[in-house]
């Protein structure tokens, strides 16, 4: 009865410097609970959200990066990272704390095109 829509969450901001990444993750978890078709896209500084080895004790802020690893428990398994953004930051897939699908820029654009709802924060 409830229509399933394709939701894409576009993450383009680094963690900790601003709250956007954390509050975006909170929406992702809620959206999954509504049984929607959820995908996450990481571009530009958003790819830093997935960097392994985050240690936030020194800035007295909660390290929320383990939540990305818990996403598959919520049936959120479609995580896409733009290759050009990784390259521009000297990162590779091995630097990331979860399994992702790496896409070229235009493939990322095609993914965006096919969504029903695109949310960015």
């Amino acid at each position: 009865m409830n229509e399933v829509k394709k939701f894409l969450f576009v993450n383009r901001k680094a963690p900790y410097g601003t709250i956007y990444a954390l509050e975006s993750l909170e929406v992702v978890l809620i959206t999954a609970a509504f049984d929607q078709d959820v995908s996450l896209a990481f571009l530009d500084d958003g790819v830093y959200q997935l960097k392994k080895g985050q240690q936030t004790k020194g800035i007295e802020t909660k390290n929320f990066s383990p939540t990305y690893r818990a996403l598959d428990g919520y049936d959120v398994e479609k995580l896409y990272v733009e290759k050009e953004s990784l390259d521009a930051r000297g990162l590779t897939e091995e630097d990331l704390l979860v399994d992702v699908t790496v896409l070229g820029s235009r493939e990322m654009g095609a993914l965006m095109d096919e969504q029903d709802v695109v949310l960015s924060f």
């Binding site: 809620i30 509504f34 709802v117 949310l119």
Partner: peptide
């Protein structure tokens, strides 16, 4: 936050 998700489901377009 469910109200945001619901808006995505129930409306024709969402603008951020």
């Amino acid at each position: 936050l469910g109200q945001l998700v619901e808006a995505g489901i129930q409306t024709d377009r969402v603008v951020v």
